[in-house]
Write a protein that binds this DNA or RNA. Structure first.
Lengths: 243, 243
DNA sequence: ACAAAAGTGTTTCATATACACCCATGG
DNA sequence: CCATGGGTGTATATGAAACACTTTTGT
């Protein structure tokens, strides 16, 4: 691992990513747990190289944790309070991990660099959870898909970030037709509806939902999907704008 | 003027403000013109002190140019392309203003500081144009309210910023009930309608508009406003949520 | 034949738009 | 009393929500 302070990063500016996935009828967020004593959960984050667009930086961070390129992502807010430091977090972390840290990891220079006040640009991303193989960073003990209703307490303002990202996602969902990024290429109407219900945390009427989706003229109807169940087989659909 | 590089600012991070006002049935933006040969228009901007929230910084910048506190403002986007530098702008500026710059203003250190790549947080603000006394900075030749349809070509991506801010304003207007920030405390229904028409650049039906606004239950009807015209006197209204 | 779930059509309601009318005001 | 513009009421169109019915599937 290269020391952040040695890299050609923009100072005091970071990116935090809320990566949304969908699985088992639940909206989930990809949350790494840090490889230290004490429970330190932190959203996937990173810094911006001098020669890199902020969107590129976000894509690089996302690719590093998900293994896939071409991810749908969007800014949702900047978090910039003056007190926004991970000084408290790191002090507690150092307290609980003295033997581990004595050796390498943080020297004073790194500690100073990383504990300064940081302004962070929040991005949210939507991924097909089946295509993702979560990647640990050197700092992580694990990285897991966590149902949005069961998020652990994360460091700093990261829980607030997720809440903000979800709010923005809900606002944009109808206008920008981005829900499909959370599904595999083909899906049934019921699966799409259950996704919407997971995102908005409320039920939708089946027939009206179908009507509304079909009238968007972005769904291409494919063959039926026979599951072996004793009922009418649903159609598969593909997201196909202007089709 | 203090040299920016000497100040305790966050490096490479700036704030640009799109300040909206309303006058003569037009939506206007407060645009300073820089005090140099050549036409350099630039949005009110500034940097963030180490001990200052980004919102506070935006308020400080806004107060400096408008003379008023308590301004409605909101983030709308971050602009962070790697090529986002005012190097070209400053080179042209120096080219055209050699005699003026020879003396003081920019030394090499300042030039280097200011021409680095900057990530900028875009804020838009809504003000009662009658309360504002536009304030020049030391760098400005003038500062004026410019109709949004007649904006000059500004430096860097500032025209794009205004377009983005307007887009966000339109999206938020109905949901957040913020249009009233652009009007004096009391106003007639027609004035409110004309404001909406200026913002959306399209006409609204008079009676339906009135109905819609009254049904929001945020307008308090006051006395009539007698203008001396030979017609029915309109009511004055005050924005009063939950009234 | 039956239960289960998918697909589609119809009615109802709320809201937005269009149309019409009456009222106050000052000359 | 008339022209002008303001306020309000009523019809129509549009879209959302609720309700009902038919079709397909495997046992």
């Amino acid at each position: 691992m290269q020391a952040p302070s040695e890299q050609n990063y923009i100072q005091q500016l970071s990116i935090d990513c809320v990566i949304f996935g969908y699985q088992e009828k639940q909206l989930k967020v990809l949350v790494p747990k840090m490889n230290f004593r004490g429970d330190f959960w932190a959203l996937p984050a990173g810094f911006i190289y001098q020669d890199e667009n902020i969107d590129q930086a976000a894509r690089r961070i996302l690719e590093g944790r998900t293994g896939i390129k071409d991810i749908y992502l969007e800014q949702f807010r900047v978090f910039g309070d003056a007190q926004r430091t991970n000084l408290q977090v790191l002090e507690r972390l150092v307290q609980l991990n003295q033997e581990k840290l004595r050796d390498h990891w943080f020297n004073q220079k790194e500690f100073d660099w990383i504990t300064r006040r940081f302004v962070s640009i929040g991005y949210y991303a939507l991924v097909d959870i089946n295509k993702v193989v979560p990647q640990k960073s050197e700092m992580d003990a694990s990285i897991e898909w966590c149902p949005i209703k069961e998020l652990p307490p994360m460091i700093m303002d990261h829980n607030e970030m997720v809440a903000n990202a979800l709010e923005t996602l809900r606002l944009n969902l109808d206008q920008k037709l981005i829900a499909f990024n959370l599904l595999p290429q083909t899906f049934t109407m019921k699966e799409l509806q259950e996704l919407y219900e997971a995102i908005f945390d409320k039920p939708f009427a089946r027939n009206n939902f179908q009507k509304k989706m079909l009238e968007l003229n972005v769904l291409e109807r494919l063959e039926k999907k026979f599951t072996g169940a004793a009922n009418k087989a649903p159609y598969l659909y593909r997201f196909q704008p202007q089709g």
